[in-house]
Amino acid sequence: MGEVNLAQALNGALDTALGSDSRVVLLGEDIGRTGGVFRITDGLLDTHGGERVFDTPVAESGIVGAAFGMAVAGMRPVAEIQFMGFSYPAYDQVINHVARIRNRSNHRFAAPMVIRVPYGGGIGAAEHHSESTESIYAHIPGIKVVVPSTPRDARGLLLAAIEDPDPVVFLEPIRLYRAVKEDIPDIYYTVDIGPVRVEREGEDITLISWGAMMKETRQAAVRLESEGVSVEVLDVRTLSPLDRGGLADSVEKTGRAVIIHEAPLTGGFGGEIAASIQERCLYSLLSPIVRVTGWDTVFPLKRSETHYLPAVDRIVNAAEKTLEG
């Protein structure tokens, strides 16, 4: 496959899934003729035909609800919602049906389906196009929530999500779609849903993030290293089920943790991670766990975007303060 960006990796994964499993179908708004608003499904209608790739009416609840029915009947639907801010009309289907049918039927029925949701800000988009409300999905029992930040993980996690016997909400960091490139294998492979990925090993401090904020987190790590700090970077990758052990292992070693996400602070997923870390390794902590997050404000429009998104400076400053402790 050679060097690809995250968007191309996702496109390739969908192509592979459609080619290798006849139960896989794609449905969503504008995913056929135009290849989707982010072109993630580009060319798939031509390659796989109109019985596999469906443009749908503008109806998110309908898309997810219909995909649910298809999944229960034995298909492996992959639904696309254009932006996270448009996913809420489908939230009822997700929380009340998709996440519950296995429990409701005591395993008699299941909904093996993937809901792909581009999320996050930083591209100067209109209102509702920059949301990162992952914690309202991670809070739902019965679904898995996955967020890749590299092309390699994007392909492997998406194929794993499509294979998974349970529903997966698959969040795609919009501003990384074309910002990260890497060589990935041109074969069918999966990346396990669950384990965190230790992206960089270090001894002094653990930076924990996922999705789009991995970019700034990586930059912050490089800066800190240049200052002589040994930094461990964790890409959480799966918000639910959370790899609590993997997080604790790292912080037990470093004794310090900074959690970075672009969603608002209050009720943000960083709170869950911080709580989990202190439950497991409070006595290894050398300093309080710090969160660097978006503010408790509405995600702003283009001109104020940089005032909102956690910048590299904020991460470095928080890390330095933590290291003083």
Partner: peptide, 25 residues
Amino acid sequence: ILPPSITVGGHMIHAVGLAWAEKLK
């Protein structure tokens, strides 16, 4: 038969997806 739906109306689209899958199959 799906277990009875308790929320009002959320299950109608399920019968669309179920039927759609059967049509595709």
